[in-house]
């Protein structure tokens, strides 16, 4: 017994003490509650979010009095009336929604071959290069990247320099809608690739070979095998890109030259420029509603693709 005790390491004894302590604090009979305990932080976070939304909903129904710069005590739907009837907000909402849809489509079109090559290439050097090229922008924040585009695409930037050498007069490449969409696509591309890569990895390469041997050309294989099987990834990536684009602030602010505001920019203006927290809250809630609606539409149109493989028949 004594020799056994000597062989028994100190760390084990420490663990015994620790386990006894844990058993005292958290008796085994409580064990069933452990999974719920782990759920608690997430529940608290979600709960805080809901509380915040309730607060915002309350604020959204109060109107700013410009004689005192206080919000009214009485509830009114005036902010909603303004948000839904003033043409300026319709313009901005239209621009944001259409922009986010365009950005989503273009991003997916670009991200798909990138992710596909990254997953399928047999060259580990190429895969590493693609991964590094993908992650590098993550280390560079959105704002810094937008500044980069200001430098590259400016009237005295590299692109116009090259165009100048080719005899093309200086072009205004910045401060317009395409510039904002371009910036958003560039910003979203890594997100989309990262969402797509696992979905593509899950498609066995053998399936593509099989389709080939069964008479499907590359294009048909893509259309009938790869694309349908990549749908969960496409839906997931599309949702992320769409919601992030819809709610983006920095890119429209910086690459839009002040004339391409998205909804988030209008919200900022209400909170911080015209001090109208009521209208700001209203716009925020409407943005949440529009985003949720788009997500809902995607779910009904393409199924809960991220959650299940099957679902739809031809």
């Amino acid at each position: 017994m004594r020799t056994y005790r000597v062989a028994y390491p100190l760390t084990w004894r420490a663990m015994d003490v620790l386990e006894a302590f844990v058993a005292f604090v958290w008796p085994p009979s409580f064990r069933a509650a452990v999974p719920y305990l782990f759920l608690l932080p997430a529940l608290i976070l979600v709960g805080l979010l809901v509380l915040g939304l309730i607060q915002i909903a309350d604020t959204s129904m109060r109107v700013l009095d410009r004689d005192t710069f206080l919000l009214s005590d009485a509830y009114s739907l005036d902010n909603y009336r303004r948000a839904l009837t003033e043409p300026f907000f319709a313009t901005i909402a239209g621009r944001s929604i259409i922009g986010s849809l365009i950005v989503t489509v273009i991003t997916l079109v670009f991200a798909f071959p990138y992710a596909y090559l990254m997953v399928r290439t047999s060259s580990s050097a190429l895969r590493k290069f693609l991964l590094v090229a993908l992650f590098l922008p993550f280390f560079i924040g959105q704002v810094v990247r937008a500044y980069g585009w200001l430098i590259i695409l400016g009237n005295q930037g590299i692109v116009n320099d090259i165009l100048g050498h080719a005899g093309i007069p200086t072009l205004r490449l910045l401060y317009n809608y395409p510039a904002v969409l371009f910036g958003l696509v560039q910003y979203m591309l890594p997100f989309a690739v990262l969402m797509l890569a696992p979905a593509l990895t899950a498609i066995p390469e053998e399936l593509e070979a099989a389709a080939g041997s069964l008479g499907a050309s590359w294009l048909k294989t893509f259309r009938h095998v790869v694309l349908p099987l990549a749908r969960p990834g496409l839906v997931g990536a599309g949702l992320v890109v769409m919601t992030l684009s819809l709610t983006d602030f920095a890119i429209p602010a910086m690459l839009g030259g002040g004339s391409q505001d998205f909804i988030a920019n209008a919200i900022y203006d209400q909170f911080f420029r015209t001090s109208d927290q009521g209208l700001g809250a209203t716009l925020s809630l409407l943005l949440v509603a529009v985003g949720s609606l788009l997500v809902g539409v995607v779910f009904t149109a393409f199924g809960a693709g991220t959650l299940a493989m099957g679902g739809r028949r031809k």
Binding site: R66, E86, P87, F88, G258, R273, T274, D276
Partner: peptide, 18 residues
Amino acid sequence: QVQNESDWFAKFKQIMQG
């Protein structure tokens, strides 16, 4: 100014961003 500027801002933006 403070009583009207949010209207002016909105009007200006509406024209410029329309």
